[in-house]
Amino acid sequence: MRLTDWRAWQASASRTAHDSRVDITPSPRAEQVPAMQRRRLSPVGQACCKLLFALDPDADLPIIHASRHGDTGKILALLDAATQSDEALSPARFSLSVHNAVLGMYSITGKSHQPLEALAACGNEFEALMSEALGYLSERGDVIVLFSDIAAPEAFLLHGDYPACASAVALRLSRSSDDDSAWTLSATPGESLTDSAPTPLEVIAWLEQAGAETLPCRRHHWQLSRAHAASPTPPAD
């Protein structure tokens, strides 16, 4: 499988030098989404739409999205309201708290008629996305995977494996490519595999290093190499 392009966003106030494919705007604005729809998207939701429109302006590729925690802030606010006897639940918050909400907003705006899928991967999002992408690539030439997460809401500061800041990364994966600048993405069942899995921030750092290091996940090490130097082999399983 080939990596033909990628875009990323992270809400980092401290970052300065960066790859031009990485947006570090603290409050991204998805200009492509009309204001009346955009107002309901959180910053990470807006960033996701921005990345998708950058990689696929005509919305004609299938997209797979995974997020470890989704929009926990909205869900916490709903739960909080549910514990108050005189507080009703906000329908707008509910409509955007579901797993496939961001892709839904994107598809309405982009008038996408492509398969759009939201994965719940219990902490192993990157590998689940890769596995799913390989399935799509057996039938199609290209697919986009989108991986996003939020920073820990205050109530969860001491719990869970949230990334240090809200972040999102989108990769366009292709079955083959004639472009010399495309990378081959391969996986080896690695030794010293970690219990943890990468957050979007770690995936962004890995992409920026461009092949210098592998990305350790629970089942495989993922490696980027120059397309002409290796054959595109899918993971062994």
Binding site: M36, A88, S90, P91, A92, S95
Partner: peptide, 13 residues
């Protein structure tokens, strides 16, 4: 103004 059905519910609340 361009409000939708979710806005109607929200406004009702």
């Amino acid at each position: 103004l361009g409000l939708d059905s979710i806005d109607a519910l929200e406004l009702g609340l």
